[in-house]
Simulated assay, not measured.
Amino acid sequence: MSCAKISHSVSRLARDQRLHHASRTIFRSRSTASPSANLIESKKRRNDIFNSQIEIQKERIGRIEKINVLYKGLPKETELVLNKYISTPYNVAQHLSQWVVKRGVLALVDDLKLWDMHRPLESDCSVQFLNFDDKDPFHVNKAFWRTCSFLLGAVVDNAFKDNISVTLHSFPSPNVKSGSFVYDVKLGLDDWEPTHDELRMLSAEFVSLARKGLILERLEVTADTALDMFADNAFKVEQIPDIASSNPGNMIVLYRVADHIDISRGPMIANTEFIGRATISAVHQLQTDLGKLYRFQGVALPTGILEYTVHKLNIGTQHRYMSNKMAHHNTGVYILLPTYMNNFL
């Protein structure tokens, strides 16, 4: 074995040992520990209610009605007859081609309404698909950052050992120009400042979840049902009435990925496989009226965007010197590349 290979192997071993040491401090080890009984029960109860609501809403559909759906886009406009309250934009894409299926990030219904790819269509309508390489991908970018924040909540909720309390608060509306995604969390830790290796561990968990290629399920429920689902989270219980009062019919919009459920008005991207390289770059302490919260912050790139960006900017290997700089390319995706991103480039 060459000296270079030996050096690389030693470096990799040292890194793995550091990460293992970090896992022994505050994080749950994926290989040796499972979530606490309380967390398992809480998630099971929430998912049981979610599943029962899906069945209740399916039963309300009754006799299946047909709707006319006009697809607008490449390769050509197509008229389809689909099932009301059952068929989704994703099903529209399936009727067209695998190429359309793979590209569809978000749907636009009747040239006006942003629509999740897996949300059932409710009436005769037209459907277009929005992608990251659109001339103006603003809405796709917002859905991307929103989805990343949602996944970040899922990662943090499962990351810490049982003796550290974790209560998810919320994630602010995405700001495309900020170039990052965040989630605010209350932790049973005093003045925690994550180490580089702890951030790497969180990043690895985030990337692992995204690479599972999970769909984002959307469900509308009553405020009472939402209060029942989140009875163990004082923050959510306080937020739900205000959110419901501003929504039509006082409904609450929920999303689920794997067994993680959270509140968001959406829309989200169709599938986590659209999330490419990512890193959790920082954790900030926030002093609020609710006490101390920790704001977890990350950056990510849509699948395939990084290579395109590097080519357009003609930066080649110089990307490692872009730490803490903001880069913008003509697809409209804003990219923040902090030092931690070097781990993924």
Rank of each mutant, 00 (worst) to 15 (best):
G291Y: 01
F144R: 07
I261V: 03
Y90I: 10
N250P: 03
R211Q: 10
P35D: 01
Q53E: 09
H284Y: 15
R200H: 12
A154D: 05
L106Y: 05
G213H: 00
V105W: 02
M326P: 11
V176D: 11
V257M: 00
D232V: 03
S31D: 14
C125L: 02
I6L: 10
S178P: 10
I243F: 02
L313Y: 06
V140N: 06
K113E: 12
F150P: 00
G266M: 00
E65G: 10
K142M: 12
L130M: 05
V310H: 10
P241G: 01
N271P: 01
H319S: 14
W99Y: 15
H311R: 14
A231C: 07
V156H: 03
P120N: 01
R30L: 14
W192P: 04
P35I: 04
V310W: 11
L152R: 05
D262T: 03
K43M: 10
V283Q: 07
L254I: 00
G104M: 08
K186H: 11
L227H: 00
N324V: 07
S36A: 08
R15H: 14
Q17D: 15
Q128T: 11
F138H: 14
V237S: 04
V69F: 04
T272C: 01
E79T: 13
R265E: 10
H260S: 03
H311L: 13
S203D: 02
S281L: 10
G73D: 05
L293G: 09
G332S: 06
N247I: 11
K72I: 14
E193A: 14
K102E: 13
A223N: 01
C125R: 05
Y321D: 15
K72W: 08
V237F: 05
V166R: 02
T288V: 03
S52L: 07
K177C: 15
M322R: 13
D228S: 08
S245K: 08
K177N: 15
T88D: 03
R60V: 08
L301Q: 12
D16C: 15
V100Q: 06
F27N: 06
